[in-house]
Amino acid sequence: MSKKGLAGFGILLLVIVAAITAPWISPFDPNAQDIINSLAAPMAEGSEGGIHLLGTDRLGQDVMSRIIYGTRVSLTVAFGAVGVSALIGIPLGLAAGFMSRTVESLVLVATDIVLSIPFILLALVLMSVLGASLTNLIIAFAVVRWAQFARVTYSLSLELREKEYVLSCRAAGISLPRTLAVHVLPNMVGPLMVIATLELAYAILMESGLSFLGLGAPPETPSWGGMLQEGRNELDTAWWLTAAPGLAIMATAIGYNFVGDWIRDRLDPRLQGVLR
């Protein structure tokens, strides 16, 4: 495995382990307020013992613990949003590629429209109508990003539907759903995985962005974007409030991208001989 791939998987593993074991590895309760230690610098000692490794925020909440709990929001939103987008987009892309011209035109026009609207704008409108919650974040993402999956699936379909083994299925009278499930979809897994990892990175950034604008996770849920937004006011006095979640977002996004690159290289048959 390449160094990049290893780094990517390392980062993601860290995030996942942190999300699962948050209650045990967090040094503090993420919502416990320690007003005396408000805006304590990193490595400061807490008033009831323990060290605030990454300092505290204005309410005296431990930044380290909030970052660790933040992985939960980050992962839920990322995998939820990308999962739902894929579930909508992939079938629509397949339909566009293998069904009638009318279906093809409808899906293509729809993806063009959706992809031409600035994403953050649409998400803003949706979130303000639906209200800030993790579920709505996932919905907002899927409403826009399904089009990405649909478009990629469609372009892969164009290539695969001309493949002779797919034509052979028709010559043998195998039904369309079965042809798609057994012969087409498995041959799309690779490229779609790459898209999915890139979308994961995108979802993390989006979650942070919306939380930063106050439209993401509810304030009592520790999320990286929310922390960034709260820390913004103390930028000149308490740099750690923005630096810590900022780095976490960046690292995770890079992690997903690295994994995506690795999958892509791995699945490129032209590289197989060289890597072997």
């Binding site: 299925c169 009278g173 195998i174 079965r178 057994v182 498995p186």
Partner: peptide
């Protein structure tokens, strides 16, 4: 291009037979 690269030969041959 005529054989699905992801399937074993037994599946490649079994699939059309099931359908027909």
């Amino acid at each position: 291009a005529a054989l699905n690269p992801r399937l074993r030969v037994k599946t490649i041959l079994d699939e059309p037979l099931r359908a027909m």
